[in-house]
């Protein structure tokens, strides 16, 4: 039978008593020890090209030279082949929603987002993989799998070398795409 979780394990049954001089001092229950470490992140080769493209409202992906798969945002490596990807491969800022959720809780890292909002796997035309983005300028409840979307960019004078230049993805009004194999995300490569 399981041991009572409130029991004291035999080995732990050693009484620890404070010296008489501090016997009536209140026990410390909790200490706060804030940690602050600053990191200087570096995006790497492929992501650098992607971020530079962002500043010009261009989506710069990379391709696996062996499988032909196109990765966005590019990480510089093809996971199917274990080799570096090559770029640039420019993709249009249109695609479709592969799947989505409607988030109804606030998130600490995006205090600007008012729930409910829709975050979705977006697959760009020509890309082999999806990535997460917000679907905006529509009711979250109206979002569908297969819905066509296009990027909503920041105003030109606010563009930076940042993925946040794309505020989100809005319905493009084109007919929905049919998702043939609903289990798999993205598209297999040419040579798979």
């Amino acid at each position: 039978m399981p041991v009572d979780p409130d029991s004291t394990p035999v080995g732990l049954g050693v009484e620890v008593t404070a010296p008489a001089s501090i016997a009536d001092v209140e026990m410390v229950q909790r200490v706060r020890t804030p940690i602050r470490i600053e990191y200087t992140y570096t995006p790497g080769r492929a992501l650098s090209a992607y971020l530079r493209g962002m500043a010009e409202k261009r989506i710069v992906a990379e391709r696996c030279p062996r499988t032909g798969q196109v990765f966005v945002p590019p990480r510089g490596v093809s996971p199917m082949a274990g080799i570096p990807t090559v770029g640039p491969v420019e993709l249009p800022d249109v695609g479709y929603v592969e799947s989505f959720n409607i988030t109804r809780v606030p998130i600490a890292t995006r205090p600007d987002l008012e729930p409910p909002y829709c975050s979705a796997w977006i697959v760009l035309d020509g890309a082999s993989v999806g990535f997460m983005g917000l679907v905006i300028n529509c009711e979250p409840e109206s979002v569908r799998m297969g819905m066509r979307v296009k990027a909503v960019w920041k105003p030109d004078d606010e563009l930076e070398k940042s993925a946040t230049n794309i505020l989100g993805w809005e319905p493009s009004g084109e007919p929905d795409v049919e998702i043939s194999d609903i289990e798999t995300i993205g598209r297999p490569g040419d040579l798979q």
Partner: peptide
């Protein structure tokens, strides 16, 4: 789980935001 990383946009509230679209599929 949601340390702000400068190169990506953060749209997920923890693991639930990541896994719920998969469950929807």
């Amino acid at each position: 789980l949601s340390l702000p990383m400068p190169f990506t946009t953060s749209v997920n509230a923890g693991a639930g935001g990541y896994f719920s679209p998969i469950m929807r599929r």
